[in-house]
Simulated scan of single mutants.
Amino acid sequence: MPSPVFRFAPSPNGYLHLGHAFSALLNFELARASGGRFLLRIEDIDATRCRPEFEAAIYQDLEWLGIGWEAPVRRQSEHLSDFREAMEELSGRGLIYPAFESRAEIARLVAERESAAKTGASWPRDPDGAPLYPGAAKSFSAPARRRLIEQDLPYALRLDMAAAMAQAPDLAWIEHGEGAGGETGLVAARPEAWGDVILARKETPTSYHLSVVIDDALQGVTDVVRGLDLFWSTSVHRLLQSLLGIPQPAYRHHRLVLDDTGQKLSKSTKATALRELRGQGATPADIRRLVGLP
């Protein structure tokens, strides 16, 4: 029987914090306890935010924590053709369309629809709180799309969720952790809650949703252990796995490390970095205690 394969996949767009340490340590120790493999993947598709110094710091922080990984490290930016190939397959099945609205234009459309609603109901949001796509780009004719693309406008490539679900109904996954609402065991996937998600952009041939399922499949990852904030993203990932005919890993979503206000730690909120804690004299044992590991 093949050995289980675990992975830790940070983005080098900032320094690692305690939440990253918890996830990396948990994956590393589960791999070691099961006699499995542990992989490190660098998710660096965002060329505007990812920087070499952050990637170098990831290696330094993980080594300091006592975590080892297999070489070579997979860097997403070196495998863009894998994502383009998947997008071409989905596009060839009529499941992808370009949408040309900016974030500001989408916000305006949402406000207009909420104002026009006689019930006063708010426009539907996805599990992360972002409004579902309100535009009409899905109904554009092929010539109209070509004309807009030829104008060199920016665009997002969206998944036609209704058409995709018609090709992959009744999806579920086995949750080995505990979900956002306490769900465990067999969990019904609800990708429709995300609307027509973005799978790529004009300047970037992939998004998190697409790249994570492609990378996990190509690397043979059998066990995806990640934060609870990604629990409902699994619905989209199960849909893409089914559409692309790639294997489903086992899923385990773990608790989040929270700050003093009860919010999850985040690079965007300037959570204290591991390198800063190390500079203050913290030891790897202190980090384990801070994240609640024995």
Rank of each mutant, 00 (worst) to 15 (best):
T283W: 07
L243V: 12
D259I: 08
A250F: 12
L265F: 05
A271V: 04
S268R: 15
L265W: 00
L277W: 14
L274P: 04
K270D: 13
R275Y: 03
V257Q: 05
R252N: 12
P284S: 09
A273S: 15
R255H: 14
L277P: 11
T272N: 00
S242R: 15
I246C: 01
L290V: 03
L265N: 07
S268M: 08
V257A: 04
A273V: 02
P247I: 05
D286V: 05
H253Y: 14
A282M: 12
Y251P: 07
R255L: 06
T269W: 08
S268F: 09
S266L: 08
I246A: 06
P249E: 13
P249D: 12
L244P: 01
R278T: 03
A250K: 15
G281Q: 01
R255W: 08
D259E: 12
V291D: 05
G281I: 06
T261S: 13
G279P: 08
T283H: 10
V257F: 05
K267A: 08
T261R: 15
A282V: 03
R278P: 03
D260G: 10
G262M: 04
L258Y: 04
V291W: 03
R275T: 13
I246E: 02
Q248M: 12
G245C: 04
L244N: 09
V291N: 08
L244K: 02
L244F: 05
G281T: 04
V291Y: 02
G279H: 05
K264R: 15
I246W: 07
G245V: 00
R278E: 02
I287E: 02
P249I: 11
K264F: 03
E276M: 06
L256A: 07
D259K: 13
G262I: 00
L265H: 06
P284A: 00
L243T: 13
L277R: 15
H254K: 03
G262E: 09
H254N: 13
V257N: 02
K264P: 06
K264M: 03
P247Q: 02
A271I: 01
K264D: 01
R275W: 11
L258C: 08
P247M: 02
T272Q: 15
Q248R: 10
G281H: 05
G281V: 01
P247H: 07
L265T: 02
T283Y: 04
S268A: 10
A273E: 13
S266A: 10
R289G: 09
R252Y: 09
K264L: 07
A285M: 05
A282E: 09
A271E: 00
A285L: 01
L244E: 07
T272Y: 00
S266W: 06
R278K: 14
R255Y: 04
R278H: 09
